[in-house]
Amino acid sequence: MIETYHIGTYWGARKEDAEECARRLVMVVQLLQPVDPLFASWFKSARSLKQSLTRPLELEVSSVQQYIQRYLMRDDRRQPMEDLGFSFGLWNGKQGENHAWLSIACGGYWEQVTNRCVLDAPNEGPGVERVLTEPFQVAALRALVTAWDPDWGAAISTAYRDMSKTQYLGAKVGWVTYFSRRLGRVPPLPAPVRIEPVEDQGTLVILTPERFTATNPEHVALADRVCELLERAGLLQRKPPPAK
């Protein structure tokens, strides 16, 4: 079975209108473009992939704002639920093994809401030798973090996430993990873990320079140890403070 990975960023209640979400979306697309050719273009959601190909994303805030506004959450009677924000997706237009998706929920300010920007890149096929590398994972997560200013984020092995999800109910530790400075300070961590700042927003924690896998006992032991240290530092708390 192929071990799958995804890159996700998450934040709590933060009221933002469609224009502000559009500015952030334009930024993340622009920041992802130089990371890899997979992200050269994006297409808006549609009823089918064929129809989606006729709807390229134009990187003008006003155009993106109109697109996002159509995806304001609504109740069963189609009445707007502004406190739940917007929920929509983008596709890179490539089918099969080179597909990539962005799934976004933003602008929600209900107390229990979780806003997110999740990137699903290929886990197999011709591009995987680029995707499943530490430089790619770091650059892609950094792009999402810079644009969305989340509480936390991770480039994570789904298998390791499932192994640890019942023990830590807040932020999840991945191959690369991000913590906003709002959550607190990242403590000293054992080698070969590396720490990198993201401007003045927060910190990236990079577990290994080689591909992290849940089938490698040394990787799992390292990740478990890092989880323990981050938990003691209060960074894996269940409910991070709201983003400012």
Rank of each mutant, 00 (worst) to 15 (best):
Q30G: 07
V220Q: 06
P135H: 07
V176S: 10
W101I: 08
P242V: 00
G125D: 01
D149S: 12
Y71E: 07
K15T: 13
L144H: 08
A105K: 15
V118G: 06
V226I: 07
R232T: 11
N98R: 15
Q237I: 14
R194C: 05
P126D: 03
P241H: 09
W175I: 03
G89V: 04
V61H: 00
A22N: 10
P217L: 05
V186L: 09
R77Y: 13
E210A: 14
L84R: 04
V128W: 02
I104Q: 02
Q66C: 10
L222S: 02
P188I: 03
R182L: 09
V173S: 04
L235Y: 01
A40K: 05
W42M: 07
R182I: 09
R194V: 07
D162Y: 06
A100H: 01
V173Q: 08
D151Q: 15
T213H: 04
A105R: 15
P122Q: 05
A171D: 01
A223N: 13
L72Y: 08
W42I: 11
V131I: 13
R142E: 02
G89A: 09
D75W: 10
G89L: 09
S157Q: 03
T213W: 02
G170K: 00
F212V: 07
T133G: 06
S164L: 04
E124N: 08
A243S: 15
L183D: 06
V176T: 12
Q112C: 12
S62H: 08
V113I: 14
V198F: 03
Q51E: 15
R23A: 15
Q69W: 11
N98K: 14
R116S: 15
K172D: 14
A147F: 00
A214H: 12
Q33I: 01
P240M: 13
A22Y: 02
C106A: 14
D200C: 01
S63T: 11
P150M: 06
R185K: 14
Y160F: 15
R130W: 04
G107Y: 03
A171Q: 02
K44H: 10
G89H: 09
P209H: 02
A13P: 15
T54R: 14
Y160A: 05
P122V: 06
L169P: 01
M27N: 13
P188D: 00
N98T: 14
A147Y: 00
G12P: 04
I206M: 05
P241N: 08
